[in-house]
Simulated scan of single mutants.
Amino acid sequence: MADITRRLGWRHLRGAPTAHVRHHRSGRLVHDGPGLSFWYRSLTAALSEVPVDDRELAMTFHARTSDFQDVAVQATVTYRISDPAIAAARLDFSIDPDTGAWRGAPLEQLSTLLTETAQQHALDVLARTSLAAALVDGVAAVRERIAGGLAAEPRLPATGIEMVAVRVVALRPEPEVERALRTPAREQIQQDADKATYERRAVAVERERAIAENELASQIELARREEQLVDQRGTNARREAEEHAAADAVRAGAEAARTVRLAEAEATRSLRLAEAEATSKVRLAGAKAQAAREVGAARAEAQAAWLRVHGDVDVTTLHALTGTRLAENLPRIESVTVSPDVLTGLLAKLGNGAASGEPA
């Protein structure tokens, strides 16, 4: 829609690059072209705005096949207005000078024209085609027929319309028929799936059997190797026992020889010690005997000398020496207790001695 601005009784129109504007004043064409911008008076101006861009027209219609089955056709037609002057002359593209809005509905007229034309050509094709063929090859056939029919339609060039492309999206039967048509395919797919399942199970069973056989063979091989291992362990144990016995015998022989050598060495050492001890004892006994003889001789000589000395001394000196020797050998006397009886006896002895003139 054109952008219209009001200024002091004048109007200013600014069109879009994709809109072709035609301005008539007093029956005379003043402005003609896309993306125009100009001033005009609304009371004397006749304006038309024709879109020149590509437009998409989506359409959905129903058709009947040769076996009387209803199908829904979904298609899209791309078109554009190649001659805006012819289109503005054949269709009402006039706009309000004050608001810029279309006075009529030209695009709806174009949609109706294109939809009915395309539907007519699609019905012609599908009416001579069965449902199964329509579902298989109907999309391409309908697309080609609609494109050819619209290109050959004389009213479209006369209206300034150019076809750009035709696309048929889908051909769909009624839901009940579609489900019924899907059933055989589904059954076939299910059968294929079941077959694949059975084959997979058979392969799985075969693989399990192969696995079980491999496990059994592995167990047999393991048992055989365990038997070999037991035999080898027994052989090793016997060999180890024999080696230990031989080592023990060698060790016992060496120990016995060592014990014999130690006993012989000990006997020799004991014999030598006994001989040395006997020799030492003999020597010691001889030394002791010699010493005893010498001591005896010295004592005898000393005694003889003592006796000779005492034989030449008088009796009084001997008595004094005897007292002295006795005093030397007496124990130490801390105190002496003199009783009257002893004192009386001593005094009597002293009196007798004095009277006789002898020393006490």
Rank of each mutant, 00 (worst) to 15 (best):
A300E: 13
W306C: 04
V313H: 05
E294R: 05
V295D: 08
L318H: 05
T279S: 12
G323C: 10
A291F: 07
A292T: 06
H319N: 08
D312N: 06
T322L: 13
T324A: 12
G311N: 12
A302Y: 01
W306K: 01
G323N: 14
W306A: 10
A289N: 07
H310Q: 02
L318V: 07
K281H: 07
R325W: 09
R308K: 14
S280H: 11
A289R: 08
A302F: 01
H310G: 01
A304S: 15
Q303E: 15
K288N: 06
A297E: 13
A292G: 01
G286W: 04
A297Q: 10
T316D: 15
S280Q: 13
V295M: 07
S280E: 15
A302C: 03
A298M: 05
A291S: 06
E301C: 01
K281T: 12
D314H: 06
L326G: 05
D312G: 03
K281D: 04
Q303G: 01
A302G: 10
T316K: 14
G286H: 12
T279A: 15
G296V: 03
D314Q: 05
R283S: 07
V282K: 04
V282T: 06
S280T: 13
A302T: 12
L318R: 15
L307M: 05
G323T: 11
A302W: 01
K281Q: 09
K288Q: 11
L321N: 01
R325Y: 10
A287L: 10
H310E: 02
V315P: 00
T324G: 02
K281E: 03
K288L: 14
H319V: 15
K288A: 15
A302E: 11
L318I: 05
Q290L: 14
G323H: 11
G286M: 10
L321C: 07
L326C: 04
A300L: 08
A292N: 12
H319F: 14
A292P: 00
L284D: 05
V315W: 08
H310D: 01
G323I: 06
A327G: 11
V282Q: 12
R283D: 07
R299N: 09
T316F: 05
G311V: 01
L284M: 09
A300T: 05
A305C: 02
V315Y: 10
A289W: 03
S280N: 11
D312P: 00
A287H: 14
A305W: 01
K288G: 00
A300V: 05
T317I: 09
R283K: 10
S280L: 09
K281M: 11
A304K: 12
T279D: 10
S280A: 14
R299Y: 03
G286V: 04
A297V: 02
V282H: 07
H310Y: 03
Q290W: 13
L284G: 06
V282P: 00
A285W: 08
A297L: 04
G296N: 13
K288H: 08
T317K: 01
L321S: 04
Q290R: 11
T322E: 15
A305L: 08
V313Q: 05
A298V: 03
S280V: 03
T317G: 00
G296S: 09
V309E: 08
V315Q: 10
A292D: 14
